[in-house]
């Protein structure tokens, strides 16, 4: 096939996405930037106000609080869910009796739509009647007001996120199947313990998968919205469960300050970009790619 024909087919096959990317991704990003310099609610035409939205944002303590909440949440949930998902995957890798039952059990929570998840956990965490506190109480562990004590609301969502991390586990599981057993056996013959084998063979072999999951997890956790929105529509108590995406949504659709919301969106994009690039930079040094994949 000659180059021109090949290029033509290339364009033809990728055409839907060229349109999709321009219309549903690039245009909104550009428009968001433009609106972020305007006073805008869909009912009224955009009115240019320069940097006023950004100025207001930097002085807006709720903005900072929501940002802080979101970063704290990401910092808590990302390592925890990575460790749990990886541990589950390692436990389930190889021959284990009842493997498919376990697999289904651990994956099931991530199948549940967010609203039911939130409703269910609200019921589990609920004050003295919530089953979690009842169980803690019966084991003589001091109980806490998960839903109404500002110190614990974020933990409640972290627990929920770790519980729902089944698809991350699945991706790790798939990655682990690529680790050649010959390598593991060789190191076992060399006298390496289980922990050493994991540290020196398994982790390097699946490091690209870890990086991928961590990056996707980071992007996801910075956007956390639906679960806290259903549990604490106003982010109360004391806005301890008020996250970036919630404040953005409220500004856009409740307070009708769409320009302000767009400015928040632009900053969020920059934040994610910087953090992701930083992660990739770290990853570059640590991640081991098989055959340069």
């Amino acid at each position: 096939m000659n180059a021109r024909r090949e290029a033509m087919y290339g364009y033809l096959f990728t055409l839907p996405w060229m349109i999709g990317m321009s219309v549903f991704m690039l245009y909104p990003v550009v428009a968001s930037c433009w609106y972020s310099f305007c006073d805008y609610s869909v009912l009224k035409p955009p009115m240019w106000i320069g940097l006023a939205n950004y100025q207001e944002l930097f002085q807006d303590e709720v903005f900072w609080q929501a940002t802080r909440n979101t970063l704290v949440f990401a910092m808590l949930s990302l390592p925890l869910s990575t460790v749990v998902a990886l541990a589950l995957a390692v436990l389930l890798n190889g021959k284990v009796r009842g493997q498919s039952v376990y697999r289904a059990l651990f994956f099931m929570p991530s199948l549940v739509p967010v609203v039911p998840v939130a409703v269910l956990w609200f019921w589990l965490f609920n004050g003295d009647h919530g089953i979690i506190n009842v169980m803690l109480h019966s084991m003589h562990i001091p109980t806490v007001n998960w839903m109404s004590n500002p110190a614990y609301t974020k933990w409640a969502i972290v627990v929920l996120t770790v519980w729902g991390g089944g698809n991350t586990m699945l991706i790790y599981l798939a990655g682990l199947q690529d680790v050649p057993t010959s390598l593991l056996e060789a190191s076992e013959l060399d006298g390496a313990s289980g922990a050493q084998r994991f540290r020196h063979v398994t982790v390097p072999m699946i490091s690209p998968v870890i990086l991928f999951n961590v990056v996707m997890g980071l992007i996801g956790s910075l956007q956390v919205f639906a679960v806290p929105y259903v549990l604490w529509p106003t982010g109360s108590p004391e806005r301890s469960a008020y996250f970036y995406a919630m404040y953005l949504f409220d500004n856009a659709f409740k307070f009708n300050k769409m320009g302000y919301a767009c400015a928040m969106g632009v900053l969020m994009f920059l934040m994610i970009l910087v953090l992701t690039l930083a992660l990739l930079k770290v990853g570059e040094r640590k991640v081991h790619y098989q055959d340069g994949g």
């Binding site: 500002p150 982010g235 109360s236 108590p237 004391e238 806005r239 409220d250 409740k254 307070f255």
Partner: peptide, 18 residues
């Protein structure tokens, strides 16, 4: 709407005695 959301956060901190 925005005022009310501010107020509810204020009330939280008052009733939690923070």
């Amino acid at each position: 709407q925005e005022f009310q959301s501010e107020l509810s956060a204020t009330i939280d901190s008052i009733t939690l005695l923070s």
